[in-house]
Nucleic acid binder design. Structure first.
Lengths: 133, 133
DNA sequence: TTCTCTGCAAATAATTTGCACCCAT
DNA sequence: ATGGGTGCAAATTATTTGCAGAGAA
């Protein structure tokens, strides 16, 4: 199966990179639609699936009901705001997370995913304000 | 809001505990239905939501499209088979994962979720067999 | 020209909700 | 008896798919 670089695919890739990652399919759809008003959400879904299959982008399976996509391919972890659902990258040196190779129930380990949850600075301020009132 | 321990709620809780965790709402529904044929899937969903709100069970947001629920409240991590989507518990001593308190982008950290991905022993065997043929 | 890709609409999957009745407290 | 809980069906949300025509190689 030969991949073709269509205008739609190129635009989707460009907008995902521009956003610095972590968009859902429909968020990306809204952005791309500004430049290509006739593009369909199905095209966005199909392309995100294909592009992550060929490792041009990364599919994140993290908190929240929708899948998110990341244009950053380097290994990194994420921090997730439980208030506003924002997701940001986290650079953790790899040796800070030791994988339990022996007690992995016999699994062949292929990767790991670390997600830290918390409250982002913006939401901390919002909460502080609410309490004052 | 006062919680009531209905037969349905009790049964859901019991079957989840019996299964040792990690069931989806519809898997649990199938099990509970054996004892209560008239229970509805909506009741299972509603109860899982309520029970995790009051911390009697835990909602897992991990790989796969469906949410899973865990009767084990103790902190632990998970290992996920990318072939058969099985999920198992992983006991990792807490000091093996150091949280990046300083470089957490100003977040107040409330928790962390570590998911290791791999291939379970059963699937390793299956794959080995397929290759031989 | 060829075969992948696209837009559209319809289908599916997972979950949630409105409503009238039920039952635990 | 009161108000949370239930079953049922319909609604929502997220995602996928069939199909006929479009366009990249």
């Amino acid at each position: 199966m030969q991949l073709r670089m269509t205008n739609q695919r190129e635009m989707i890739l460009r907008e995902l990179k521009k956003s610095k990652g972590h968009l859902t399919a429909d968020e990306l759809y809204e952005r791309v639609k500004k430049f290509m008003p006739r593009i369909s959400l199905a095209t966005v879904y199909r392309n995100l699936e294909i592009l992550s299959d060929v490792n041009m982008i990364r599919k994140l399976e993290i908190s929240g009901r929708q899948k998110r996509f990341d244009s950053e391919l380097e290994d990194h972890d994420h921090i997730y705001c439980v208030e506003c659902h924002r997701i940001e990258n986290l650079e953790i040196s790899k040796n800070q997370v030791e994988l339990p190779v022996e007690d992995a129930h016999g699994y062949t380990i292929t990767g790991r995913r670390l997600e830290v949850t918390g409250v982002c600075p913006r939401c901390q301020k919002k909460i502080a304000k609410t309490k004052k009132q």
